[in-house]
Design a protein around this nucleic acid. Structure first.
Lengths: 248, 248
DNA sequence: CAGTGGTCTAGACCACTTC
DNA sequence: AAGTGGTCTAGACCACTGC
């Protein structure tokens, strides 16, 4: 009766390590503070560096740590609440601390999955506008906005065919459409090389992929695929009633 | 002039491996098919098993593969589109292929973050209803619903204090409230041990954490924290206009 | 340049599922 | 008992940052 089933299911070392580190972060470290390097931490806990890294990886995934090659591991600030889909009525570049930066626009054939949403034939090129979402000077998200030519009929063919000016022209035309609704999905992905670069992360970094389908007159006017840094972002979706407590 | 800068930025082996495997999955494997085991794959590609595993991990994160200890690695079906927040008006257990299963309810002190949202004092116990969301017989999500006593005043104190019957009683009372709105956030997390068990995954598995705050009469009526399997789920958010193409 | 995190190896053993 | 994926080790070298 006295046998209390101690450690009959021993948890993995890296899991226990993660708990210990997590508690230490709460009590002994301030946001921004740098941790001892991996080799020292591993030695201090008496584990191999790979095991220690497994624990750090989890904590980074949860947004508790930030690791940068050549620099070190620092305590991350709490995740930012990022409102998706509340940037006023469409595609305006807002200003201030949280804003979209329009990069450029090119003609391109969208990936098959996007073409399906756009209801265009698989090889039809469309306008592809690249934007970056910044907050307090740091990149939050990289977005590719796919716009079929039919959605922006007013676009003069003579204008410059690519680059930032073209991108703004596409957005300007898009803003004239009346939206009937939006449809969104969120899933986990890993950053492609180009997105990773914009997000200041390594390729393969975990991202939240937000796919938005904009509907007008029963058609799909445009499709946006935005990849948000999963380590730093908490996506918030309001439905208009009341202040956004969650966005805190 | 002829020097075309080949491989001046060599990509990591596991990254290249991932690409190769991903292509192979598209062209040579069917959904549900089992791959050769890790030791053999590693040998076949001439890399260490750890390196191969790094590639497999990424593919699993992207929902391309499913790995089960003692069984093997299989090709995963495309992610399910899961509608969050469309289960008809509140907390009804829907039936059919996609449904919530109410597990139980206990009195418990919510985590600090939840207490803050509920606007209750940190140590106030509340009703905690546990539910599981199933689709086609497989677990999609595990949810903890926190309901302050004030939100369900009609709850008779004499009823059984915990268990499934109590859980249903709480939900029944909750359904009488008129909701003014909902506020949602989505972020990446890793499964706690208890959630992992319900989701049929190992602890630490990547999950999408959906936090919902239900508002009524300016107050927070309840807070739900649902953890969805990130490997199998794509969360969809409609806003009511038109069919859900993304839910595919 | 020194110091950091990122990649990679070649092994070992463990936990779990299946037969 | 055999076979799978999961954990862990002790090393090595690479890529990047900052002084």
């Amino acid at each position: 009766m006295g046998t209390t089933q101690l450690e009959s299911v021993p948890e993995p070392k890296y899991w226990h390590l993660k708990t210990v580190l997590s508690d230490a972060l709460d009590s002994e470290f301030a946001v921004g503070e740098v941790l001892p390097n991996e080799r020292e931490l591993a030695a201090r806990f008496g584990v191999a560096r790979a095991t220690l890294r497994q624990a750090l990886e989890q904590l980074e995934l949860e947004g508790r740590l930030q690791r940068r090659r050549g620099v070190g591991t620092t305590v991350a600030p709490p995740r930012v609440g990022v409102a998706v889909g509340d940037y006023a009525h469409g595609w305006a570049d807002t200003s201030g601390e949280d804003s979209w930066r329009t990069v450029d626009s090119v003609e391109a054939v969208p990936p098959a999955a996007v073409a399906r949403l756009l209801e265009t034939a698989p090889d039809t090129p469309v306008h592809r506008v690249r934007r970056t979402r910044m907050s307090h000077g740091r990149p939050l998200a990289a977005e590719l906005l796919y716009v079929p030519a039919e959605s922006v009929p007013g676009l003069a063919a003579i204008e410059t065919p690519s680059g930032p000016a073209r991108a703004r022209a596409v957005l300007r035309e898009l803003r004239r459409l009346e939206l009937e609704g939006r449809e969104r999905s969120v899933e986990l992905g890993s950053a492609r090389a180009d997105d990773a670069k914009e997000l200041d992360r390594l390729p393969g970094a975990p991202v939240l992929v937000v796919t938005t389908r904009y509907v007008t007159e029963g058609r799909t006017a445009a499709v946006a695929v935005a990849t948000y840094r999963a380590d730093t972002c908490r996506l918030t979706f309001g439905d208009g009633a009341g202040e956004e407590l969650l966005a805190g």
